[in-house]
């Protein structure tokens, strides 16, 4: 009993007061800034996932390994800004000299409550752990009425982690079909958005994504809990 009280006192108050406005550690690689002088082709040759294209850097492909930043610090730097989720795939492309992410358009009718079902489809357990962490005492996603539920029947959205392996394609489809309409699709992490480091694998079956349109993309490898909280909160249009 005394041990318990001692532990409780030493534990203190762990919740982040406002996860939407908190400062993240300066080492965190978030929204990148690309210099106008950057040679995107040279950067792309270096990139393990070929995330650079003509227009800029595709955050949906980027695995935030930092190779480009370490090699060409004058061309690119990753800022400690975790607000990198987007509601449209093309909004994930960061163009040179772009300073902010485009705003996320809210969906209607979910201001106070939003229930999600997670399907891990080939995920490496990093995004899964971060999604779980967004529900812990520190990030406490529940304070916004956001819930991760145990059945698709109770869900407003399916949140996919992982690149969607062939062996999970059917199960993902079945989960989606079991989710009542209106239903929303959220892709969490680089693997879910683009296949990430697995994009060249023949063991993937991403055909699900050609049938259904996602309404939120949360980049990261893995996505940081703060990015997840911010993205979903913005999607709900909550105050």
């Amino acid at each position: 009993m005394f041990n318990l009280i001692k532990a409780r006192i030493r534990h203190g108050y762990q919740a982040i007061p406002n996860p939407l406005k908190t400062q993240i550690h300066p080492s965190f690689p978030g929204r990148p800034s690309l210099s106008g002088k950057a040679d995107l082709e040279a950067l792309n040759r270096l990139c393990p996932v070929s995330a650079f294209e003509k227009k800029g850097l595709d955050l949906g492909k980027c695995v935030f390994c930092g190779l480009c930043e370490r090699r060409y610090p004058d061309w690119i730097c990753f800022n400690p800004d975790f607000k990198i989720a987007a509601d449209k795939r093309e909004n994930l492309i960061i163009t040179p000299e772009q300073a902010t992410m485009p705003p996320i358009q809210a969906i209607k009718g979910f201001k106070h409550s939003f229930a999600m079902r997670n399907v891990s489809a080939g995920g490496c357990n990093a995004c899964e752990l971060e999604l779980g962490a967004s529900n812990n005492v520190n990030f406490d996603i529940g304070r916004y009425g956001i819930e991760i539920v145990a059945s698709p029947r109770h869900a407003d959205a399916v949140i996919v982690t992982g690149p969607i392996s062939k062996n999970m394609a059917d199960a993902l489809h079945a989960t989606w079909q079991a989710t009542p309409q209106p239903r929303y699709l959220i892709l969490c992490g680089s693997c879910a958005i683009s296949g990430g480091v697995f994009s060249n694998s023949v063991q993937l079956d991403r055909s699900f994504l050609s049938h259904w349109q996602a309404c939120l993309y949360i980049p990261g490898c893995p996505a940081h809990p703060l990015s997840i909280v911010h993205g979903i909160h913005s999607l709900m249009g909550a105050k």
């Binding site: 390994c65 891990s120 995920g123 690149p163 062996n167 480091v197 697995f198 694998s201 993937l204 490898c221």
Partner: peptide
């Protein structure tokens, strides 16, 4: 269910640049 063909992917591209994988 999680099979992603990892051992095959390790062989593609530069062997010395496979840390992310």
């Amino acid at each position: 269910f999680q099979h992603r063909g990892l051992e095959q992917l390790m062989l593609q591209g530069d062997f010395k640049e496979k840390t992310a994988l």
